[in-house]
């Protein structure tokens, strides 16, 4: 499918139509972000009046000033970093050795252990038992609870295991003949060879940790421990029916809308920064790796 010059008239029309439709879809994907950015940079009055469409009206950084001096915002930002980094490392610490063991033919009961992982993807006890269990374990309202409680996910284990299974067994055997024990085989041979899969799993973990909201909301009461997403939610909910904001509308340069938009922008920026790296991995269709046994 190389050269459009070789296409017939009808084919060229078809291609242009496709590009047009894709362009429309892409713009409609992009637009809400631009819109939010524009609102965050407009005055509260203009935003409230519905005058912001594409670009900031009466450019101001008031909403950012309002949010950036808020200690709770920074606190939750820091918390999100703690949960994301701690949680991802914890996930890898469970998943890499576990998946390696599951991939070894010499493991007794291998089918059983694999089934034990797969079953959790087909059946889960649901919100209530999970919550009660968390409470019974004394993990409510703790950093450690959030970090360990969501460390493992069957899909990631199986993705990792499949990758290990695809590495020829002779690497393990060669390393064994060289005198390596299982930990050394894993650490010095299989982990370096599994870098793409580890990166993929790590990215899955990072994304889900960064965006994680529901359980953080349910399991954390202490506002000093909540992550950004929960802070965001509280703030959005609070602002939308806060009398103070309506009253100050004409004296302040910000409003509920502009502050909400500013928080949204602040929390998207890190995602946009790592997004190019994500792209590289997801484009390769690695995501398909977990979809077969």
């Amino acid at each position: 499918m190389a050269n459009m010059n070789l296409y017939s008239r009808g084919d060229r029309m078809f291609v242009w139509l496709n590009m047009f439709l894709i362009g429309v879809f892409a713009l409609s994907t992009l637009y809400p972000f631009i819109y939010i950015a524009a609102i965050s940079l407009s005055t509260g009055f203009e935003a409230r009046a519905g005058n912001v469409v594409l670009t900031p009206v009466e450019l101001t950084f008031a909403a950012y000033k309002y949010i950036l001096v808020e200690p709770a915002f920074w606190r939750s930002y820091l918390n999100t970093f703690i949960y994301t980094i701690g949680g991802t490392l914890m996930s890898l610490a469970f998943i890499i050795p576990g998946a390696y063991a599951l991939s070894r033919p010499q493991l007794y009961g291998r089918r059983f252990w694999n089934l034990m992982v797969a079953f959790t993807m087909w059946f889960n006890a649901g919100l209530i038992p999970f919550f009660l269990n968390f409470r019974d374990l004394g993990l409510l309202d703790s950093y450690f609870g959030i970090i360990i409680g969501f460390a493992v996910n069957g899909f990631n284990v199986i993705l990792m295991r499949n990758f290990f299974e695809g590495i020829p067994q002779s690497f393990e055997e060669a390393a064994r003949m060289d005198g390596a024990n299982d930990f050394q085989v894993l650490w010095k041979v299989y982990v370096p060879l599994a870098k793409p899969a580890i990166a993929t799993v790590a990215l899955f973990c990072i994304v889900s940790r960064w965006n994680g909201f529901f359980w953080a909301m349910v399991l954390l009461q202490d506002q000093d421990k909540v992550p950004l997403q929960v802070f965001l939610r509280h703030t959005i909910a609070k602002l939308s029916d806060d009398q103070e904001f309506s009253d100050t509308l004409f004296t302040q340069a910000y409003s509920a809308e502009t502050v909400t938009a500013a928080i949204i922008v602040c929390s998207i920026i890190p995602v946009l920064l790592v997004y190019p790296f994500l792209q590289k991995y997801f484009n390769k269709g690695i995501l398909l790796g977990g979809v077969k046994e």
Binding site: I36, N211, Q229, L232, T260, A261, I264, V271, Y275
Partner: peptide, 16 residues
């Protein structure tokens, strides 16, 4: 891109 954005943010955008 939107796949990688949290539901809280998406909801925030929708609400706005």
């Amino acid at each position: 891109l939107p796949h990688f954005i949290s539901s809280v943010i998406i909801a925030g955008i929708v609400i706005t």
